[in-house]
Design a protein around this nucleic acid. Sequence first.
DNA 1: CCCTGTCGGATTGTTCAACGAACCTCTACG
DNA 2: CGTAGAGGTTCGTTGAACAATCCGACAGGG
Lengths: 245, 245
Amino acid sequence: MFPGRFRANTQHSTINGGPYDRAVTTDRAERSADAIRELIVTGRLTPGQRLSEQAVSETLDVSRNTLREAFRILVHEGLLVRRPNAGVAVARPTLADVVDIYRVRRLIEVPALAAGDPAHPGARTMRDAVDAALAARLGGDWRDIAAANMRFHSGIVALASSPRLDRVHANLSAELRLSFGLLGENGAFFDGFVDRNAGLLRRFLSGDADGAAADLNRYLTDSERMLQDIVDGAGAPGAADTVSP
Amino acid sequence: MFPGRFRANTQHSTINGGPYDRAVTTDRAERSADAIRELIVTGRLTPGQRLSEQAVSETLDVSRNTLREAFRILVHEGLLVRRPNAGVAVARPTLADVVDIYRVRRLIEVPALAAGDPAHPGARTMRDAVDAALAARLGGDWRDIAAANMRFHSGIVALASSPRLDRVHANLSAELRLSFGLLGENGAFFDGFVDRNAGLLRRFLSGDADGAAADLNRYLTDSERMLQDIVDGAGAPGAADTVSP
DNA sequence: CCCTGTCGGATTGTTCAACGAACCTCTACG
DNA sequence: CGTAGAGGTTCGTTGAACAATCCGACAGGG
């Protein structure tokens, strides 16, 4: 009705455009969910923080009803939790959650790698991710390293060529990054893993899938232990919630 | 001090069949989703069938907005598919879907059983499910057998004590039951598996977890092949689909 | 001082009505 | 026979409204 309504067209398809540019973006609720998910996994929303429907709907410029659909998605993914009549808040991963996430990761990733084919497109993803991680380490932003690391592991899962495994794993990654948020600036954490990933990849590409899988298993064990320590250490505050950036 | 601590968890376990009152999910959208899911997995809504927002909202006696939240959940679970500006329809599982579902099932169930402890509560679920299946076979309704069979396998997964695996597996079960809908009345399908489950369970309880896991592996292979034939036979008409009663 | 019960404001859960836009169908025309 | 329109139907999204519930402040008693 009013010009103010329209907004954020950006990549949005024009009125008609090519028939093929849709299917990816449309759908305001999904886009809102993407935006909020991004805020969560990048740590700009912290665990326990409450999200007011009105405030967020104004920020994202969508109606409350549409936003509620977005919340449904994120609650279903486990990134948000809902309390009856008290709205939603960013999930607060517990130690048990971290353990569980790693258990599932191990179950998915290790067999995928052990049975993987170095010629599979997923291997390309892994290679690119390692390169990106090496470059990011020079750049100095540990967030970039973390992102590349995640891509590396999603490449491993891709080796299985299973849409459902990809989906589940993507979800686990998001939950994990939510836990990473507790890292704060303490992300030197990842540096040691970059080389291990590179070695693992070399081994895999050379045909030693079983050896690579064994490497991965150790990696997951070590990584889990480190993350457990972090979550455990940061799990007591009790004070949380309420927006206030 | 901790009036309402948000904690990630509680997606009520849908294992229990009885619609007991218990702190009912006082959440209309979720309840609506449950109702629709039930219609889908019991075959009263057939693959490809379109769901009108207005019609369904009147049937369930909820507003269109609330129903849209329920649709979001089910789309996310893969039981409904959404076409832009054309609403939602019941998903139409393809052969690739069945293959993928079984791949993930195998990945989850076999290790869970192999590493399972006969003293775990999940074993009790398995035992009860076998008993129920044997009873249902006398009763004659193959749907009861199918339901018991599903409970048996969810018991296997429960052995792993992983909330996330439980959730994923429950979702797979729902998708599978959606495929079963194609069975029509042709469900003698399951009869042969009841005894196999019983044998598998006996083996597991006697301490031979590895042998039981091997049984399970064969079971999944056979079951998958049978289901593939069914889906293949029912999905024949060209690549294009569209409902066409 | 701390605990407890109550009250008002704020937020959520849910519904309704509305409107543009996209789709589907059926017709009329070349 | 095929195609272009017209019209109806449904979706996508919004804004407003109301009851139910929760949260925080406040007052009173131990």
